[in-house]
């Protein structure tokens, strides 16, 4: 099964690294396939940043998303640009203090997290992307937690691993409680394992 994910925000939020960690977890540590592309160019340097990630249990052909199952937006601009194109029953993750959600089909599952503030509380704002990854990990069962942790270890400098692990766990804990709070229905695509039940 193919899952389409888009991460979008602005430069400096670590959008690409977040997508890279998720892709790496799927492709290297869970035996699946992942294809990551990024919007690239002057508009991606300091301005808007966006990454498209496809994960599947089969080789991936078409390299771009067509209708995202999961959309992660960390800026209002990204929300305005990409939310209309996502799957009406998909999962939307937003940075609570940066994005005001409006005009969405009621069937979209919206989860918000103050990732930037949580990262600041952990001591370094730059790990907000890893907080988001942890949050995403808890909300979906596409990839096992172990695979995420392996991917994280393979992606960040050793000296910063401890901080990143704490950021991941912080996001993960928020995700678990949000999941209970919202009672995410079992039948939604995003809540089901795409392959290899953990």
């Amino acid at each position: 099964m193919l899952t389409e994910i888009r991460f979008a925000g602005f430069g400096g939020q670590g959008i690409l690294l977040a997508a890279n960690i998720v892709g790496k977890a799927a492709a290297l540590f869970q035996g699946g396939h992942a294809t990551l592309t990024q919007s690239y160019g002057p508009e991606a340097r300091g301005g808007a940043s966006s990454a498209q990630l496809l994960i599947s249990d089969e080789p991936i052909l078409y390299p771009y998303t067509t209708q995202e199952d999961i959309l992660v937006v960390l800026s209002q601009e990204a929300f305005a640009k990409f939310a209309p194109g996502m799957k009406p029953t998909g999962l939307l993750i937003v940075e609570e203090e940066l994005v005001r959600v409006s005009d969405l089909p009621p069937t979209v599952h919206v989860f918000s997290i103050p990732a930037t503030r949580l990262a600041e509380e952990l001591g370094k704002r730059v790990v907000l992307n890893v907080v988001i990854v942890g949050f995403l990990a808890a909300l979906t069962h596409i990839i096992t937690k172990e695979a995420y942790l392996e991917a994280l270890k393979a992606s960040v400098p050793k000296a910063l691993l401890d901080l990143n692990l704490r950021a991941f766990e912080k996001g993960y804990a928020c995700g678990l409680s949000a999941r209970q709070r919202e009672a995410l229905p079992e039948e939604t695509a995003v809540s089901e394992p795409a392959w290899s039940e953990p």
Binding site: N20, A34, T35, L36, Y40, I60, P63
Partner: peptide, 10 residues
């Protein structure tokens, strides 16, 4: 091409 060059996979 740009797509393959900037595409990340295993």
């Amino acid at each position: 091409d740009e797509c393959v060059g900037h595409m990340t996979e295993k």
